[in-house]
């Protein structure tokens, strides 16, 4: 009887793993395809019927892709933006979330709804008004339109962090208040140390968003020396539109940091989602 139940458990687990492996393969396929294409010759890419594997692995494509455009300059520019966006997003979103979760003030819930309402506005509707606003500020062809908004707290991140803050018992901050702690002290020394999962989650999301952002640099940057890595890759694609091997090699190099970062912070990422109540 027991062995039958055990066998049933093993079969159902094996079935579950089979589905997971199949799912993983579907998601891994594009990355594998990028890698295989990056290692082919141009002729092998264009061959019809399709040739799945290269005859000789063309590792030199990576070296050519890296030297074909100023990748180090674009990398430096992107990292500059990433650092400021990380600081701006984490600082502003946690402060706003603190105000929405730990402070009591009139109209708090109404304003929170208003904040969430801004998420319903499609980005394309605000593109031209934002552009005109930044133009009037004299910010075109500078990094300011790509940095300053991160210091104004985005609704999605505020919502996530607020949900996380609500899981921290109020008694902690109340006892600190009795001991004479100010809100800034409660925020920095009690709340923040307890919410590393959600902060890491927001930070990883911000990193990936800033790293992959194409529309912002396209709109606001005109000087080649200010280009970011994604925008630079697009320019590279324009110049080498037919050389898919080089393009895939460059794309792999550029996407590697986000993949590595996600894999190394996956634990915090999932914990953040679970704790902020987003998990179904």
């Amino acid at each position: 009887m027991r062995s039958r139940a055990k066998r049933k458990r093993v079969i159902s687990k094996a079935f579950l793993y089979l589905i997971l492996v199949l799912g993983a393969m579907i998601f891994l396929f594009p990355i594998c395809w990028m890698l295989i294409t990056a290692l082919k010759t141009r002729a092998e890419v264009m061959t019809y019927p399709m040739q799945w594997l290269p005859e000789v692995l063309q590792w030199g494509n990576f070296a050519r892709a890296i030297t074909a455009f100023p990748i180090l300059l674009y990398l430096r520019n992107t990292l500059f933006l990433v650092v400021f966006n990380l600081v701006g997003t984490v600082l502003s979103c946690t402060l706003v979330a603190y105000a929405f979760s730990r402070l009591r003030w009139p109209g708090r819930d109404v304003w929170f709804m208003v904040l969430l309402g801004t998420m319903m506005m499609p980005g394309v509707c605000t593109m031209i008004p934002s552009f005109i606003m930044y133009r009037n500020f004299g910010w075109i062809d500078t990094y300011l339109p790509l940095i300053v908004p991160s210091f104004t707290a985005s609704a999605g991140n505020v919502f996530l962090i607020r949900q996380f803050f609500r899981t921290i018992p109020n008694e902690l901050s109340e006892s600190a208040k009795i001991d004479g702690a100010s809100h800034l002290r409660i925020y920095s020394q009690i709340i923040m140390p307890l919410c590393s999962p959600v902060v890491v989650m927001v930070a990883v999301g911000t990193f990936m968003w800033t790293w992959n952002d194409f529309q912002g640099p396209l709109l606001y940057l005109n000087d080649n020396n200010l280009y970011t890595i994604t925008y630079g890759l697009r320019t590279f694609q324009t110049q080498n539109s037919t050389d898919w091997s080089l393009l895939m090699a460059a794309a792999l190099v550029i996407s590697a940091p986000t993949i590595i970062l996600f894999l190394s912070c996956q634990k915090y990422f999932i914990e953040g989602i679970v704790m902020s109540g987003l998990k179904g």
């Binding site: 075109i140 529309q215 697009r234």
Partner: peptide, 21 residues
């Protein structure tokens, strides 16, 4: 000279024309 990809040019130029830049 600024060369932009054919596929992204519209997104670049339309706001610039509307914004006077």
């Amino acid at each position: 000279l600024l060369s932009v990809s054919f596929w992204d040019y519209g997104n670049k130029i339309i706001p610039a024309l509307a914004g006077g830049t």
